[in-house]
Structures are given as structure tokens and as C-alpha cells.
Design a protein around this nucleic acid. Structure first.
Lengths: 215, 215, 215, 215
DNA sequence: AATGAATGAGAATTCATTCAT
DNA sequence: TATGAATGAATTCTCATTCAT
């Protein structure tokens, strides 16, 4: 499971204001386990039932804790959603970083994204459609910025540094998101053909910009 | 605005069972205007406030009609959502058809999609992630099938008929969806660069398959 | 059908205040037919669907008139209920009177009651359980008084005039009501055995008082 | 008050499927008291205001609990009605059983029925005429069967076993119901004369069948 | 700290009644 | 006069949140 409060997480991973949303920092191991269980249950419920089925009582039930305990650690539903989102988005950023660190970026990127979405196929989509009260803009913006910055690195490594406005990064990330999310919704994530075609798409797009004359 | 009950709509556009969801078919001009106003208001609310802010009273208020009138035409909330979705999806299919009819498919496709999503930037995303009971499965499946079939025509025209399993169509549609929806969410739909890059992506993907040896 | 506004109805039949509830006296034949149709439909709906299904729109629909026309003749739901009740209770009183006029009272009484309840088996019960806003006490009391008075005549003819407090009349009427209504509810009204046993009950009760020593 | 969840209740008293209607079984003393208060309040409201005045908010208010608490224990309005009915019908069956156990059946029967209906004079009538969806058919049928069976025992003990089709039991029960309910509605339950006359009726009917030639 | 019963504002839906056509 | 679309108060039910135990 992705650690929510890992000290070794990169600095840029920490979303500002994140910890502040927690009613109390869980110092004890038991508390930490409880928080993890709640976030895990929340992700599961959000993924399986969507926003409509995502009630605090349901999450508490799935987590196996009382509703009172849930509110011991999360001041309100918003804070819980924030934690779930943070966990998921951290995982996405981790995939991006590891893809950048490796040499064969596209393959690592695709495989990592597929892996993330296999556990909670619908979660990411749902998180992107935050109902109004749950959209803590600052945190979300921070994620978006880092997300696009990392994609920009990917683009730059293949296309060169001519994507000053970040449009190519935006396009590439959006297209990949779209493919992954739709495949997840239709249960095609495990399909080898999907992985192949997505790689084709990515390479085509990145190459074409590098050697536009070559076409 | 897309007419919901236009007589001149192509037959194949009508999703079977669609009209059945209406409590009563609006015959008078006034009734028709009221239904249109409600659907329009519903789309606006769903777009602006998301699923959580989409309450029947809010929609009625925005439409400027009483809540009773809303329920005169829509037996319940799901029927209203269905109508909104039908309207949007019909528009999407119309764009696809018109792009196929023309010779320069990609440009028409991209421009049409951008045009559709400019009015209600977030609507389509929300519509894709409806809570379970709100999806009248048959109608939705009918849309999906037609949607992929039309994309398949686009793919076949450029790549040739070697996409038997429809994977390329799936991939292309998903990627375009992802790009359009993300751009809509970030307010980049009017950006000329976005249009250009999306065309690059599409052409790259379609060409590459046509002449895979050429790479 | 029982005429609602028959001029030849006995004076004691007219419930005071009844006509006042009508918004306008239907002078034209068409109006009168419309009122009859509405009352008939109301009885049918009340009988078949009970209080919960008895809505003004439903009654208008069954009567084949517009809701506006219904309100043309009945100022509100209460007035409609009153008319239905009046019609049914008038029929009940008519049966009682005719049974008294004949010589073989019990048979005529039982047969008449069974006949009345065969058309609308549940109506009488429903009318006895008037929801609060529909209980126009004065009219109801007038019916009750006449009803018990007539039963008192039946009792007196067999038992003699020693039922000064009307208790025997009350008992006899209540018992018959109970039997008829329960049989109606269970679909046993046509059962010959039921008629026979009810006669046995009535005769036993009336005879026993006349000649208590004879047993 | 009749205990709703008493452990010592006879097994045959429990209508199968009855407890299943409860959202959660009240384990704590406080919960049990709350459920009792709600059912009690429901009976009071149904009795006093009839079906039309029986709103869940009204019941909650009379019970002195919040509407949320009501729904914590009763999944919907029908479940509450079922509980009220069960309570009343259990009391009726208990009276019948105790009357059968004693030797002087008619007196015990009449006194028991009068006692039951004195608290909520109009309740039983209303319960018999519930709108369609509110009758959990199986449970209601089970009550009816047992009810008629016990009346059949009473009949058999006095008239002999010649009521194979149960018509006499049906008639006797219906007549008694009618008398009791009408008396309750008119506030005559406490009247000694009523008790006397009802006994006369019952004895007359039962005796007459035993010695039909004696008349 | 943990529990889960209790709360009540808010959302969906109905239906008696009005009134413009 | 007849129509039926429009209205909105009233009703059922949910779920985020609190607090007594």
C-alpha cells in the first residue's frame, strides 16, 4: 500500500496544506493503521460506488471502524476525500518520476499507469470530477502543476525543449489519461493490445514532433 | 441549441427507448419550450456545479419553472439526466457523422468536438461517470456501440480495415475524449495550439498504422 | 345508478348542508351528466385504490373529464368526497326503508346490503374511515341518526319497543356492517352460505330478545 | 403495554418475517425504549388522525424523537405501520387464546376485545383498510389464518365441529369486529349495555346452531 | 479513545388547486 | 365553459455530523 505519511517522500510530493486538514497527526502505530484503513476503504468505496455511494458511514463500515473514529481523524468528509486524492495522486507522480529516471520512458509510463488503475479502475476518473465542496483548489493545483511539469520532462527528452507553453505535455497527459480511464471503465486494462496501441500512440506523437519533416 | 424533439433528426440518431422516459410528450409549443428550458438548465447546472450540485429544485430554479413542472415532464431525476445525456451524445454522434461525410475527417472531427464542449466544458465528463442507477444501460450501450462504430469508420478510412477488434477505434476515441475533456476543464478549448496539437496526435496515430514499416 | 339530485328523494334523505357544498347546481343535462360521471368515477377510485389512490387528477381521468371541470363543480376534494358518501349512504338508507316497507324484513335487508356492496365492495368501509379533513361532522351525524332510527324500527318490529336507548339497533347494524364488509373484502359476498348464516345471526339476535325465556 | 420484543412471547405468536422489517434489532435498553415509543406514538397518531394524518414527521414528533431516529429503526413508513399492526394483532390473538383457555369463552372474549380497543378506539379499523402497498401480504395472511382458526375453535366448542368451511367462524368474527369497532368509534365501549348485548348476540348465534331444531 | 445512537437540514417527489388559453 | 399546464406546500427519506456512554 502507498504510505500516506512516509517521511522519505520527496519534498515536491507534499501538497501544501495537506497535513493541516488532519484533525490530529496519528503518532501511534494503531492510529496510523486506522487512518490507513479508512483511506483505503474510502478509495475502495469511491471506486466501486462512485460519489453517490460514498457516504461516511459506508466508508467507516468498510474500514471496520466506527463512524466516530472516522471523525476522530478526519474533521469532515472533505478531509477524507483530500487524503484519498493525495494518496492516489502521489502514486501517479511516483510512476511519472520512475519513468523519467529509467531510460525507456514510454514503456515504464504505460505499465505504471496501468498498474495503478488496476486496483481502483474508476477512482482516478471519479477524483477528477470533484463535486464542488470537495475541490480544495490549492492542493489540486499543486498536483496538476507537478504532474504537467513531469510530463514536460518526458516530452522534452524526446521532442526537445520546444514545448515552452507546455501544450504538448498537456496533450500527451490528457490523451494517456483518456485512454487509461476508458480502458479501465470497460475492463480492458489487462488487454495486451491496449498496451501496445497506447505505446504506438505515444511514440507516434513524440517522434512526429522530433522529426516533423520526416513525414 | 440541439433540438431535442426535432422531426428532422435522422432516424438512426434516435436511441431506442429514449422518448419512453418522458412522462408525457410535449405537444404544445409552450410545453416544448419548457422541456427545452429544463434540459438546458439541467445541462448548465450539471456542468457548473457537478453531480453534487445537481438537485431538481436547483434545476427548476435555473430553468425558471416550478419543481412541479419539472416532474410533469420527467418522472424522476434519472429521466432528466437521461435527456441531458441524450442531447449531448446525439451532438457527439452528429459531429462524428458529419466528419465522416466530409473528406478531411480529422479537422472536422476536432473542430466539431471543440465546438460541442465549449458550451458546457465539464458536462461530458460528468455524464460519463454517472452513479450507477442513473445509466439506462440499454440506451447508453447503444450510444457506445454507435460511437465506436463511427470511430471505426474513421480509422478504417486512414489505416485500412485491419482494426478488426476495434482497439484502434477505442484508443483514438479515448485519447481524443481525454484531450478534449481535460482542455475543457482547464479552459484551453479556444487555444489554437490545442487544436493543432490534437490534429498532430490524431494524424500521427492514424498514419503510423497505415505505414508501420515506414518508421 | 342512484340519482344524486333526484327531486323525489324523501325529505329525510337530504342531508342538511349538502347542496351548499356544490359550487353550482347543475341545471343543464350535460352538467348533471358530468357531475354524475365524476361521482361515479370517484366511487370507483375510492373503492379500488383506497384513500391513498384517491387523487383528484385520477378521478378526473377515470371520469373522462379535465381536472378543471371537476373543480368547476366541486370546490375542493372534500365536496367530492361528500357527494360520494351521500350517494352511497342514500343507497343504504333506501335499502333499509324498503326492507321496513316489506314484510320479510331480514331477507330484504340482507339481500339489499349485499347488492349494494357488490358494485363497490370496499367503498363503505373506506367511507367510514374518513380522514380528518373529509369528515363533515354534521352531514355524517345526520346519516348516522337516520340509519340508527331505521334499524330501530326493524328491531322494534321483532323485539318490541323495549330498545329505548337504541343499543340493540346499534348492535344489529354494527354486526351486519361488520359481516358485510369483511365478506366484501374477502370476496365472499356472492357466497350463498354467507347470506344464510347472516340471516341466522340476525334472526337469532332478534328472536332471542323477544322470547328470552323460550330458550 | 404489549411488549414488542418480549422474549417470553409464545412462539406461535411470532408472525414469520415480521422482525425482518426492522432495519436493526434494538439491543440496548435505550434503543428498545425508543422503538416502543415510536410504535406507541404511531398507534396514537393513526388512531387519532387516521391514515391521512399519519406522517412520519408527526409520529416522530409525538414520540419525542427525531425523524432520523425513526428511520434508524424502520426502513420506511410501511415498516412502521407493520409494527403497529403486528402489535395490535398480537394483542387480538392473545385475547382469543386466553378466551379459549378459559371455560367461559364469550365473556372473556368480549371483555378482552373491549379492553384492547379502549386505548386506541379507531386503530383497528384503520389497520384493516391500509392502502395496498402497506400490507406485507404474507404476515397479514398469517394473522388472518390464525385469527379465523382460533374463532373456529370457539365455534366448535359450542356448536360442534360442523363448520367445516369456516363460515360460522368468519361470520362470528366479522360481527364481533363490526360491533366493537363501531362502538369504539362512537365511544360506547365502556357502556355496560353494549357488553351485555354483544354477549347476547354471540350466545344466540352459537346456541342456535348447536340446537337448530330447538327453535 | 472508541462507539454508534441520535440529530435535523436538505433532497426527491406528489398532488390539491389555480388560471391562462 | 372546458382544458390541462403550471404551481408549490407538504411529505418521505438520507446522510454528514455530534455527543453521551
Amino acid at each position: 500500500m502507498i504510505e500516506l505519511f512516509s517521511e522519505e517522500a520527496g519534498v515536491s510530493t507534499r501538497i501544501p496544506g495537506a497535513a493541516a486538514a488532519m484533525r490530529k497527526a496519528p503518532r501511534q502505530a494503531r492510529s496510523r493503521a486506522m487512518v490507513d484503513a479508512i483511506v483505503e476503504a474510502g478509495a475502495r468505496v469511491l471506486d466501486a460506488r462512485g460519489w453517490a455511494g460514498f457516504t461516511t458511514n459506508e466508508v467507516a463500515g468498510v474500514a471496520g471502524v466506527s463512524i466516530g473514529s472516522l471523525y476522530q481523524y478526519f474533521p469532515d468528509k472533505t478531509a477524507l476525500v483530500d487524503a484519498i486524492r493525495r494518496r492516489h495522486f502521489d502514486a501517479v507522480l511516483a510512476v511519472l518520476r520512475s519513468a523519467i529516471d529509467g531510460r525507456a520512458a514510454p514503456e515504464a509510463l504505460v505499465d505504471g499507469m496501468i498498474a495503478i488503475h488496476r486496483d481502483f479502475p474508476a477512482l482516478h476518473r471519479v477524483l477528477l470530477d470533484l463535486p464542488n465542496p470537495y475541490a480544495s483548489e490549492a492542493a489540486h493545483q499543486a498536483f496538476q502543476d507537478e504532474y504537467l511539469r513531469l510530463y514536460g520532462v518526458v516530452v522534452a527528452r524526446h521532442r526537445g525543449p520546444d514545448d515552452a507553453d507546455g501544450l504538448a505535455a498537456h496533450l500527451l497527459s490528457s490523451a494517456i489519461e483518456g485512454v487509461i480511464h476508458n480502458a479501465a471503465r470497460r475492463g480492458l486494462l489487462a488487454e495486451p493490445g491496449l498496451r501496445r496501441e497506447l505505446l504506438v500512440l505515444i511514440c507516434a506523437y513524440l517522434d512526429i514532433a522530433v522529426t516533423p519533416a520526416g513525414r
